[in-house]
Simulated scan of single mutants.
Amino acid sequence: MINSFLTRSRVVDKGVLVAAPYVLAGQEKHILAGLNDDFYARGNLDPNLSVYGVYRDGGNYVDPASGELLGVRAQAIGSAKLKVMDKDVATLGVTRSEEEIRAYDRLLPDEAREIDTTFQPSAPPDGSDGLIVSVEGSVRVAGLLDVVAINLGDRSGIKTGNMLAIYKKGEVVKDRVTGGHVQLPAERAGLLMVFRTFEKMSYGLILNANRPLAVGDAVKSP
């Protein structure tokens, strides 16, 4: 199922994670919690919400071309169910864990992340031209079924289901005739499908790759 390859991470505005409720500790003062464990959190939790996502600050997404801050990566760590509240301290139970939950991890309202099974691939707006900003999983290169972040989002007219061709940036080689250096043309190296959009950027799943892909490679209308 394609949903198993998609990231649960989110992109939030600067300051959202800082202001969010945070993990105090696990039971018996443990600093880590895993699946089926309980932990304590503090902050402005809504007693009407039963499930929260647990996130960690994964760093900033920065446009490699303009230097613009595109958002902050809220790295998905797990999910937890609200059990008891006592003033501003709550007890929650871990219902899903991608890795151990730590003190200072943040809580945000949980999201439904299933992709629509009736989804149809579509063309992006004409002239769509962007760059890979990051590779999910903190790895240097991306390949088939990896998730990447791109610097095209809602404001660029990008929508879920849009298909974008990936172009590998050409190498810089020495011209042995003139003695100077020249950058080789970019070559098509893959295809991605956008599965989640945000205001300034999107997440895409690589559906085809004939060579390793990396931050700075171009994405364009096929």
Rank of each mutant, 00 (worst) to 15 (best):
N3Q: 07
S4F: 09
S4W: 04
L6N: 15
L6T: 14
R8C: 09
R10N: 05
V11Y: 02
D13H: 06
K14M: 03
V16W: 06
A19P: 04
A20R: 00
A20D: 03
P21G: 01
P21V: 06
Y22H: 15
V23D: 00
G26N: 03
G26S: 04
E28S: 14
E28C: 11
E28Q: 11
E28D: 15
K29T: 10
H30A: 06
I31L: 08
A33K: 00
G34C: 10
G34R: 05
N36S: 13
N36H: 14
D37I: 06
D38A: 11
F39V: 05
Y40T: 13
Y40N: 08
A41Q: 01
R42K: 12
N44W: 01
L45N: 03
L45R: 02
L45Q: 01
V51I: 15
G53Q: 00
G53W: 00
V54T: 03
R56W: 07
D57E: 09
D57Q: 11
N60C: 12
N60V: 13
Y61F: 13
Y61K: 03
Y61T: 04
D63M: 06
E68G: 00
A74S: 02
A74E: 01
Q75F: 08
Q75W: 04
G78W: 01
G78A: 05
K81L: 14
L82F: 05
L82M: 05
V84F: 07
K87L: 07
K87W: 01
V89P: 07
T91V: 11
T91C: 00
T91D: 00
L92N: 00
L92W: 00
E99F: 07
E100S: 08
E100W: 09
I101L: 14
I101D: 11
A103Q: 09
Y104A: 04
L108K: 10
D110T: 02
D110F: 01
I115L: 14
I115S: 09
I115A: 12
D116L: 15
T117Y: 05
F119K: 10
Q120V: 10
S122R: 15
D126M: 11
G127Y: 08
G127R: 14
S128N: 01
S128V: 07
D129Q: 12
G130H: 03
L131K: 15
S134A: 14
S134P: 01
V135K: 04
V135E: 12
V135C: 07
G137C: 06
R140V: 12
V141Q: 13
L144H: 14
L145K: 15
D146E: 02
D146Y: 05
V148C: 08
A149T: 11
A149F: 10
A149R: 08
N151I: 12
N151F: 10
L152Y: 04
G153R: 03
S156F: 07
K159S: 10
T160M: 00
G161S: 13
Y167S: 11
Y167G: 06
K168M: 09
K168Y: 11
K168I: 12
K169F: 08
K169M: 15
V172H: 05
D175Y: 04
R176G: 00
G179W: 09
G179S: 10
V182H: 04
L184S: 01
A186C: 03
A186V: 01
E187R: 14
R188V: 09
R188N: 08
G190C: 02
F195K: 05
T197L: 05
F198N: 03
F198E: 04
M201P: 02
Y203F: 15
L205W: 03
L205E: 06
N208Y: 10
A209I: 10
N210H: 11
N210G: 08
V215H: 06
A218Q: 11
S221Q: 15
